[in-house]
Amino acid sequence: MKSTTDVKQQIIAASKEAFKRYGFTKIAMEDIAKASGKSRSTLYHYFKNKTEVFDAVMLDILSAILALASKQIQKNKNLKDNLWDFQLVKLNELKLLIDQFEHVVSDIRVSPEILNKITHVLKNEEISLVYQILVIGIENGDVAEIEAAELDFLARSLVLGMRNLEVDALLFGNMVVEIKQLERLVLIIAKGLK
């Protein structure tokens, strides 16, 4: 007998493929049930509606991206390299998402409120990782000493600024421009925090 967590994870994994095929707007719970090989009643046992399924799918995807990006943070790297490598992994993964989930991206471009919820998923974890990058920068002498409250504010501000680049890439699809802007931003941040 499968555990509740296993069944839920199966539904989430199968739902990724369904969202790739139909997008957010056109998908129905019936499509998700078929994709997961579960009955609609089983589906409704775990999720109230397609929005909850979508949120679970996005949480799963974004968690994996953040975990991959966090592996780029290393104590022996300078601030610029840690920030650049962290963000570059996120942008490259975002590009793959845009390519794989073109119907969802089209839905987001028409109804940006879908994006609103996505951008808040894992925000605090991302802020914590950028905070860690800044602390490493201070320890390595790349960043001037900053009070903890100011450091927290700086980490939040950096995440919000860099997320704007990600949102632009998602909404307008010009990844090359966004990567160049990210590179400029990282250089300015690294120079400005010395």
Rank of each mutant, 00 (worst) to 15 (best):
I136L: 11
L96S: 11
F19E: 06
Q100V: 02
A149E: 15
G23F: 05
V159F: 09
E93V: 04
K80F: 10
T119S: 09
W84Q: 13
Q9P: 00
D142L: 11
A35K: 06
Q100R: 14
H45Q: 07
L96T: 13
D142F: 12
V143F: 07
V110G: 00
I136C: 05
K16Q: 11
N92H: 13
L83K: 05
P112D: 03
I61V: 13
M58A: 08
E150T: 08
Q132N: 13
A33I: 10
L154I: 08
M175F: 11
K16Y: 00
D99N: 14
N164H: 13
E147I: 09
L170N: 03
L171S: 01
A67Y: 12
F153C: 07
V7Q: 09
I188M: 14
I12P: 05
S39M: 08
L187R: 14
D55W: 08
V135Y: 00
L129S: 05
V121L: 15
G161C: 04
N116T: 15
I11K: 03
V104P: 01
I61R: 02
K77W: 03
V135N: 02
F47T: 03
Y44P: 00
R40P: 02
E126H: 07
H120W: 08
K2H: 12
L59T: 12
R109S: 00
Q132K: 15
D31T: 06
K71S: 11
I136T: 07
A14M: 06
L154W: 06
K75S: 14
I138T: 02
K194R: 12
H103V: 05
K77A: 03
A169W: 10
L66V: 09
L88N: 12
L129W: 07
V186L: 05
T51P: 00
D55C: 08
G37R: 10
L43P: 02
A64I: 02
L83G: 04
I27S: 11
T119A: 06
Q74W: 03
L151F: 04
E178W: 06
D142H: 12
M162G: 09
G161K: 04
L154M: 10
E139T: 05
V7M: 10
E145P: 15
Y46D: 04
E126T: 14
I114L: 12
L165A: 06
L185S: 15
V176R: 15
A69S: 13
F24N: 01
S111P: 00
R109N: 02
R40Q: 12
I11L: 07
V89L: 10
V110H: 04
T4G: 07
